[in-house]
């Protein structure tokens, strides 16, 4: 980019070319024509992203491995984890659904946390790690396919559906999953894409 191009910004939803607005901490600039968010500054975005991705990586192991719910009926007990719910679909012959549950509720959220950790660690220490632009792009493309909160809502609906016929005990995994959802939601809202790309671009040219 030439310096004069760096002064400009194009709205990615309507392509209006604007002078890059100067915004302060925790402000956002909107496109005057279509109303999309052009850039939104976040206070300490890099440090917060690093902290939140660390917290998420700690929480994700218990969230996917401890039981979310245990069902008790006539002396029988059956537990549900994210992994066993995918495996149960697989054993019913619905391998495509099993794959989707694994992807959207385990693999994509884990990858998002790892990628965010990688990029924010490199930017925080201002060192150049390999694959930073690729990691950031992958994070952006994976963002909407991580569906932990939808999975949690699905589990809550199933509690209501089963509550009349059996006893349901919430497990430790449910607590960890709740925490993980708070952490990932915060990390999405604390991420200043513009700042991250600017810093990655600077590292590329060193």
């Amino acid at each position: 980019m030439t310096p004069e191009q760096a002064e400009l910004i194009a709205c990615h939803e309507c392509d209006l070319l604007l002078q890059r607005p100067i915004i302060l901490d925790s402000q956002a600039a909107r496109c005057p024509r279509c109303g999309s968010t052009l850039i939104s500054a976040r206070h300490n975005s890099i440090e917060r992203s690093l902290a939140l991705s660390c917290a998420g990586l700690i929480l994700i192991l218990p969230a996917v491995s401890y039981p979310l719910l245990t069902l008790e009926l006539m002396g029988n007990a059956q537990s549900q984890t994210i992994f066993t719910s995918a495996m149960a679909l697989f054993s019913d012959g619905l391998w495509f659904l099993a794959l989707l549950v694994l992807l959207f509720a385990m693999i994509v959220p884990a990858c998002k946390l790892l990628l965010l950790f990688w990029v924010s660690l490199a930017l925080h220490l201002s060192i150049k790690l390999p694959g930073m632009p690729f990691a950031m792009r992958s994070y952006q493309h994976l963002d909407e396919w991580g569906m932990l909160e939808v999975y949690l809502l699905g589990t809550l609906v199933s509690i209501i559906k089963l509550s009349s016929m059996a006893t349901l005990l919430p497990g430790i995994g449910l607590l960890c999953l709740g925490g993980l959802i708070i952490v990932t939601t915060l990390s999405s809202s604390m991420l200043d894409h513009d700042l991250f790309w600017h810093q990655i671009g600077k590292k590329q040219h060193e």
């Binding site: 009926l73 059956q78 995918a86 619905l94 589990t155 609906v157 199933s158």
Partner: peptide, 30 residues
């Protein structure tokens, strides 16, 4: 858009929980 996956995850939870052989069993369908 992503919130319409809700029903899929409800099925996933029910199928995992209700595996009690002859008493009660829920299985996923196409």
């Amino acid at each position: 858009g992503r919130w319409s996956m809700l029903d899929i995850f409800v099925v996933a939870a029910l199928v995992a929980l209700v595996q009690l052989g002859n008493i009660a069993q829920i299985s996923g369908q196409p």
